[in-house]
């Protein structure tokens, strides 16, 4: 079973895990993210579906969705950033090229600074004359 191997290989790098039918949501620390993603993407051959950023009371969480196509299983590493003012985390674009756009979109929406992202510019609001140069999330405050 790939998932058993995965959890065994990662060991204590995996935090709190929610397990549902064909879905694994687990917390990962920022410094372990690259190891985990590397294993999921390169060793297990998963495909990155997308990533979801959500603003919660306790901070901003980013949830990556990796699909293991052979079994139909989803692996969702979750990063939680406590600092809402200046959220910062590692970019996985150097490992997964396909993550470029989704990380740019999240950066634009939530002001998350993706460390090591090759192209840090807004995805949707380039050439947009009216949107302020702030993450869209901050517009609620003003």
């Amino acid at each position: 079973m790939p998932e058993n191997e995965f959890f065994a290989a990662m060991g204590d790098k995996i935090g709190k895990t929610i397990e549902k039918k064909l879905r694994y949501y687990f917390e990962v620390k920022n410094e372990d993210l690259h190891d985990v993603v590397n294993y999921i993407f390169n060793t297990m051959g998963c495909r990155l579906s997308t990533a979801t950023a959500t603003e919660l009371y306790g901070g901003i969480e980013v949830l990556y969705h990796f699909s293991h196509d052979a079994t139909g299983t989803y692996y969702c590493p979750r990063i939680i950033m406590k600092d809402k003012k200046k959220p910062q985390m590692k970019s996985i674009t150097p490992i997964v090229r396909g993550a470029e756009w989704i990380e740019r979109e999240m950066a634009e929406m939530f002001g998350i600074d993706f460390d090591g992202h090759p192209r840090k510019e807004p995805l949707l609001t380039r050439n947009n004359p009216t949107v302020e140069k702030l993450p869209l999330r901050l517009r609620r405050i003003s």
């Binding site: 495909r47 196509d69 052979a70 139909g72 090229r97 396909g98 993550a99």
Partner: peptide
């Protein structure tokens, strides 16, 4: 690497289809 999906990926030899995967 770019995580392409659908016919775009299948024309490049990536066998991915939600209908058979899940």
């Amino acid at each position: 690497e770019l995580c392409a999906v659908g016919p775009t990926a299948r024309a490049s030899g990536v066998n991915t289809d939600v209908r058979q995967d899940e």
